[in-house]
């Protein structure tokens, strides 16, 4: 028996919109800890890891660990039927082949339920090692989104470099080149607008902008984004989900032969 009641249902809507273009089908793993998901895109270049902790739900009942295979496009179709202010409850039975989404309007005058078919998904679970990153950049999520969008009109790849000067985003294309440097900017009264750069050593990595632009679909989930870089690891782009958990996108770098 599974019953998860999320008062801020819009969070689930946003989460699915943020990952559905990257991942087609995924297993949602439900345990006492919370609802989690780990999935790669079809070309295995990017990986998304989601955690919604049990404490973030108003009611959380998960009698035993359960893995539910869902088509994210179908899930999106159903969740789009929920209002932004609706409370969403996810209900399932052990061993059942469907899941039910119940939507309640804030004043309880409209209650809907949508039953969705589950699917069997053969997915590999990858071990993500704890890592010491060379540099961690925290910046406004809207700024990061703007940079990725702007640069993708000029080039296909971006070099992200962190030095003492700041974080630099560089691209090159047929029409020319572009460099955007963001310096550390600790705005005390507006911490969400701060850019904070922690650097253990300088690092420079190349990534496909197409994927970074896809990750920025999570922008509305969090005012800030954290970019963790190490020269020998995929970059981690993390959006925290208020009081509940996170979406982390891992992107494998482009490497010289």
């Amino acid at each position: 028996m599974l019953e998860l009641r999320l008062v801020q249902g819009s969070l689930l809507k946003k989460v699915i919109e943020a990952i559905k273009d990257l991942v087609t089908d995924a297993n949602f793993d439900c345990s006492a800890t919370g609802l989690s998901l780990q999935a790669m895109d079809s070309s295995h270049v990017a990986l998304v890891a989601l955690l919604l902790r049990s404490e973030g739900f108003e009611h959380y009942r998960c009698d035993r660990n359960i893995s539910m295979g869902m088509n994210l496009n179908n899930m999106s179709k159903m969740l789009k039927c929920a209002g932004n202010d609706d409370i969403i409850t996810i209900k399932g039975d052990d061993g059942g082949d469907t899941i039910t989404f119940m939507f309640e309007s804030p004043n309880q005058d409209k209650i809907s339920d949508f039953e969705m078919k589950l699917m069997d998904i053969d997915s590999e679970h990858l071990g993500i090692p704890e890592a010491e990153y060379h540099a961690i950049v925290k910046m406004p999520s809207s700024e990061f989104s703007r940079i990725c969008k702007d640069l993708s009109s000029i080039g296909d790849t971006v070099v992200i470099s962190v030095t003492k000067e700041g974080v630099k985003f560089t691209t090159r294309g047929d029409i020319g080149t572009a460099n955007i440097v963001c310096r550390q900017n600790k705005t005390i009264d507006k911490p969400d607008e701060a850019t904070i750069i922690e650097m253990n050593e300088p690092v420079s990595l190349t990534f496909a902008l197409r994927y970074l632009n896809s990750f920025t679909k999570a922008t509305s989930l969090s005012e800030s984004v954290t970019i963790s870089l190490s020269s020998d690891l995929p970059v981690v782009i993390e959006y925290k989900i208020a009081d509940m958990g996170y979406i982390r996108f891992y992107l494998a770098p482009k490497i010289e032969d």
Binding site: T206, P234, A252, K254
Partner: peptide, 14 residues
């Protein structure tokens, strides 16, 4: 130019 690597080059199956 640089070649795209994959996640599985860095993270192993559990």
């Amino acid at each position: 130019g640089p070649k795209q690597s994959t996640i599985t080059k860095f993270f192993g199956k559990v």
